[in-house]
Nucleic acid binder design. Structure first.
Lengths: 204, 204
DNA sequence: CTTGACAAGCTTACGGCGTAAGTGGGACCG
DNA sequence: CGGTCCCACTTACGCCGTAAGCTTGTCAAG
C-alpha cells in the first residue's frame, strides 16, 4: 500500500477531461471525479475553487491544444491553417469542445482571437474592418464546429424527430441536409467562400 | 378563494421561459418553476415529461418566434431578412436563445433551415452547394449570435479576465475587440461579406 | 342518486448533488 | 522534540430530479 501520487490541479483537470470525454458533461460531478482519483469529493477543493473552475479548466484545454500555425507569406493559407487547427483541436475532444465553444472564455481564447485579427490585418483590412472580418471568420468556425460536434455526438437527432412527427411537412430540407454530410469538405467550402469575400472586399 | 386557472403545458412552458429570462437557465428547477405557478413540483409532471422536456420546449419558442420573411424577387434581400428575423427572435429572449443555439433541435429548427436552403437554391446554387452555402450562412448567424448574446449577458467578461492577468501579453487584440462593439452593424458586415461570396461563386 | 373511472393535484421518499465547516495525521522545519 | 502547515477525510446542510402512491374534484353511465 505505497503512498499514492499526490493530488494536484493538473491531475484533477486531466481526470475531469477524461471523464467528460467518456460520459459527457452531465456525468461530471465532484463526487465521481473524486472517485476516479481514488479520493473523497472534498479533497478536490484543495486544488480547485469549485465545479465551475473545473469546467473552465477543461474548456481551456481545447484552446490550449490549438496549434497556432506560423504565419507564411500568404494570409489566406494562414487562415485555412488556423481554421484547420481549431477544428482539429475541437474534434480531438468533442464533448469538451461543446463546452469550450459555448462558455465565455476571455484570456484562454485570446491567442486565437489575436491570430485571426493579425491575419485579417495582413490581408489588407483597416483596423476596424479587420476586427469585423476576424469575428466573422471565428463565428463561422464556431457555428460550424458546434453543428458538426453535435451531429457527431448524436448522429440521428434530426432524422428521429422528423420521422416521429406525423404529417412530415418538410421532409425535403432535412433529407437534403442528411444526404450531404462530408463535414471536412463542407468546412472548407464555407471557409473558401468567406475568404473569397474577404479578398474581394480588400481588392475592391 | 376561487378555483385558479388549471395548469397546462403551455402555462408551464411560459412560466419556465419567464423564469429563465429573469434569472438564467441555471436558476430553473422544477421546484422553483412549480412555486412560480403556485403548485407543487410533482404536479408539473402531469403536463411535461421531465426537465429536459421543459428545456426543449422553451428552446423551441425562439425558433417559433422567428418570423420567416415572405420571399421577394431578390434572394439577397431575403437572406438579409431571414438573418435579421433570426437575430430579432434571439435577442428577444437572450438567455433562452443560448439554449436554442446550443441544443440539438431537429424539427423545430426545420422551417429556418429550409428557408435558408430555398434561398440558396434560388440564388443559383446546385443542390449540394446550396446545402453547403445555407449551412455556412446559418453557422455564421449562430456563431455571431452566441457571441453577441454572451457579451450582452456578461458584458465585461473579457475585460475582467484580461485585466486581472498580470503580464498582459495580448492587450492589443482584446482592446481592439472591445473598442468595436456595434453588434448590429457588425452582423451586417459579415452577412454582406458572405452573401457577396455566394453571389460571386454563382456568377463565376 | 349512486357508482366508478379518470384527470390532475399533493405528499412522501430516495439517492445524488455542490460545498461550508471542522477533524486528524503526517511531513517538514525550528 | 514541539510547532506549523498541508492536504486528505468526515460530517452535515440544503437543494435537486423524480419514482410511487394518495387524494380530491368532475362527470358519464347505470
Amino acid at each position: 500500500m505505497g503512498a499514492r501520487e499526490p493530488l494536484s490541479r493538473a491531475r484533477v483537470v486531466t481526470a475531469a477531461l477524461a471523464l467528460v470525454e467518456r460520459h459527457g458533461v452531465e456525468a461530471l460531478s465532484m463526487r465521481k471525479l473524486a472517485a476516479e482519483l481514488g479520493v473523497e469529493a472534498m479533497s478536490l477543493y484543495n486544488h480547485v475553487k469549485n465545479k465551475d473552475d473545473v469546467l473552465d479548466a477543461i474548456a481551456e484545454v481545447v484552446f490550449a491544444d490549438i496549434a497556432l500555425p506560423a504565419p507564411t507569406a500568404d494570409w489566406r493559407t494562414d487562415a485555412l491553417a488556423l481554421a484547420h487547427a481549431f477544428r482539429a483541436a475541437a474534434l480531438a475532444h468533442p464533448r469538451t469542445a461543446s463546452l469550450s465553444l459555448t462558455r465565455q472564455l476571455g484570456y484562454p481564447a485570446l491567442p486565437v482571437t489575436e491570430a485571426a485579427l493579425a491575419l485579417m490585418t495582413r490581408a489588407g483590412h483597416d483596423p476596424e474592418q479587420a476586427v469585423h472580418a476576424s469575428r466573422a471568420l471565428l463565428a463561422y468556425v464556431i457555428g460550424t464546429l458546434l453543428r458538426e460536434i453535435n451531429s457527431t455526438t448524436d448522429p440521428d437527432a434530426l432524422r428521429h424527430t422528423t420521422l416521429t412527427t406525423s404529417g412530415l411537412p418538410h421532409v425535403t430540407a432535412s433529407a437534403a441536409h442528411l444526404a450531404v454530410c462530408h463535414h471536412e469538405s463542407e468546412y472548407r467550402f464555407g471557409l473558401e467562400l468567406l475568404l473569397d469575400a474577404v479578398a474581394l472586399r480588400v481588392a475592391g
